[in-house]
Simulated assay, not measured.
Amino acid sequence: MLKDAGYIEEKRLAWGAREVIVFELTPLGKSRYEWFKTINDELFVLNEWTSE
């Protein structure tokens, strides 16, 4: 689902006789990650929850 949405890309690399699959964030994926992180930080400020 993340690959279809353009957030990650799949790369297949040779590792000796084997093949490994590596997933990397795309620029869009990095942008969305930062967006969700910002929202999470605003909603769940650690100090607010630990002071009660």
Rank of each mutant, 00 (worst) to 15 (best):
L43I: 09
K30N: 00
L46Y: 08
L46A: 14
K37C: 01
R12P: 04
D4T: 15
F23H: 09
K11V: 07
M1E: 13
N40F: 14
L43Y: 13
M1Q: 09
K3R: 14
A17Q: 13
G6E: 06
Y33Q: 15
V22C: 05
N47D: 12
E48A: 05
E34Q: 03
S51L: 14
L13K: 10
P27S: 00
L13Y: 08
G16Q: 06
V45S: 14
D4N: 11
L25T: 00
P27M: 01
A5Q: 11
N40A: 14
D41L: 10
F44A: 01
E34T: 05
K3P: 03
L28F: 05
W15E: 14
D41K: 12
E10V: 10
K37V: 01
F36E: 11
L25E: 00
A5S: 02
W49K: 09
R32F: 11
V20A: 05
D41R: 15
Y33C: 10
G6M: 01
N47H: 12
E9R: 06
G16W: 07
D4W: 00
G16C: 03
N40Q: 10
E10Q: 12
E19G: 09
G16M: 11
W49H: 08
G6H: 03
P27R: 06
S31D: 11
W35Y: 13
F36P: 03
F23G: 05
T38L: 08
W15T: 10
L46G: 09
A14C: 08
R32V: 15
A14N: 10
